[in-house]
Design a protein around this nucleic acid. Structure first.
Lengths: 135, 135
DNA sequence: AGTTTCCTTTACGTTTACGTCAACGTCAAG
DNA sequence: CTTGACGTTGACGTAAACGTAAAGGAAACT
């Protein structure tokens, strides 16, 4: 008998799985970022909802607002079909990429500065060490 | 007569230079992120203040809160001298680096997904093109 | 002297992203 | 059948990061 991973989850389960509160999950639903099915009044979440939640949380970690995240998500499941649609989507992708790359440059700059700060620290430590040994 | 860049700036000048409002600059001062000198009641900003403002704005772009930014800035001009201080600072640097690297992973993941989305788009466009030519 | 321009502080308003009750439905266990 | 765990919908509260309006000081044209 095969008993794989569940196919549906409750709000408490996914909140727990993703390390957020159920309030947060419902908030994202209020903003239209997730739309789980309903069994009666209760929400039931499927794999697709988990994927979107993962997207949302990653966007949040990167520093996007929930509104920006919505436009990104919308981008991912925009109706692709006509040439005009596709070309619009491609331009959107270009914008997003430029944004992300700018952020990455900032990030790398910050990391480089951290490195040089660390180097100075180790230098200072070495000097203190030498002094201690000699004196 | 040499007329290089100014040595001091008013709040309006640096706000303009950095593309923020004077209200924002004063807000950062309220939070202790910048502390310009005073000439009477007026604020005068020097190069050091500009450096800090640049740090703050970059941190903001990366997605740090102003509180997190404060701890980072404090890190940069912490009193280095004793071994204990230096070692504490090194541990702080380690934490920050881990944080930044996690963010970069998220960023790279997002960029990779954008790439694959773009590839699918171009693929769809090619197919539509072929259909148009043949049909 | 009067007006403009730039600066100041004080203080309340706003948006985002939730937290936190309150009040109620529902389903399984005891 | 009640208790308890888990779910629901409002609705108000809050912290962060400013915006904005009010009221005024001080230098600098005119």
């Amino acid at each position: 008998m095969t008993r794989g991973a569940p196919v549906t989850w409750t709000i408490a389960q996914i909140a727990d799985d993703f390390g957020v509160t159920h309030r947060t999950v419902r908030h994202y639903e209020d903003l239209g970022l997730i739309s789980p099915e309903r069994r009666g009044t209760a929400r039931i979440y499927r794999r697709r909802d988990r994927t979107r939640l993962a997207l949302i949380l990653r966007g949040r970690r990167i520093g996007f607002t929930l509104d920006e995240i919505r436009t990104i998500i919308d981008m991912y499941d925009a109706p692709r079909g006509q040439v005009a649609q596709l070309e619009y989507l491609l331009s959107q992708i270009g914008d997003r990429r430029a944004d992300l790359e700018a952020r990455r440059r900032d990030l790398d700059d910050a990391l480089a500065e951290l490195d040089s700060l660390e180097a100075r620290c180790r230098d200072d430590l070495d000097k203190l060490d030498a002094t201690a040994s000699v004196g």
